[in-house]
Amino acid sequence: MNLTVNGKPSTVDGAESLNVTELLSALKVAQAEYVTVELNGEVLEREAFDATTVKDGDAVEFLY
């Protein structure tokens, strides 16, 4: 899956889609429990991480 992460191209191997929690784990995001996630310009509530799917071509920003 090809994404733009914090403005840079990134690839997650072996996945066509992941939820936000899985993406944080796959990318080994440090202190993931404290990060705010913006997906395609929309800031996500932490409670929505498990239910929100990240797909090929999406833009993700991790805000600390």
Rank of each mutant, 00 (worst) to 15 (best):
N2R: 15
N2G: 06
N2I: 11
L3Y: 03
L3T: 01
T4P: 01
V5Y: 03
N6C: 12
G7M: 04
G7Q: 04
G7P: 02
G7H: 06
P9A: 09
P9T: 08
S10G: 07
S10Q: 14
T11E: 06
V12L: 11
D13L: 15
D13V: 14
D13Y: 15
G14E: 06
G14I: 08
A15K: 12
E16D: 12
E16Q: 13
E16L: 14
N19K: 06
V20T: 01
T21Y: 09
T21A: 08
T21Q: 06
T21V: 07
E22F: 06
E22T: 08
E22M: 11
L23V: 04
L23S: 00
L24C: 05
L24N: 00
S25H: 12
S25K: 14
A26Y: 15
A26M: 13
L27S: 00
L27T: 01
L27Q: 01
K28E: 06
V29Y: 06
A30E: 12
Q31H: 15
A32D: 08
Y34V: 11
Y34C: 14
V35F: 09
V35T: 05
V35R: 03
V35P: 03
T36C: 12
T36I: 14
E38Q: 15
E38M: 15
L39W: 04
N40L: 01
V43K: 11
V43W: 07
L44M: 04
L44A: 02
E45N: 12
E45T: 10
E45G: 10
R46T: 05
R46S: 06
R46W: 07
E47N: 12
E47I: 09
A48T: 09
A48P: 01
F49A: 01
F49I: 01
D50A: 10
A51W: 14
T52W: 05
T52D: 01
T53G: 06
T53Q: 13
V54E: 00
V54F: 04
V54A: 02
V54N: 01
V54C: 04
V54I: 10
K55D: 03
D56F: 05
D56I: 05
D58P: 02
A59F: 13
A59T: 14
V60A: 02
E61K: 15
E61Q: 12
E61F: 13
F62I: 15
F62S: 02
L63N: 11
L63E: 09
L63P: 04
L63V: 13
Y64D: 07
Y64C: 11
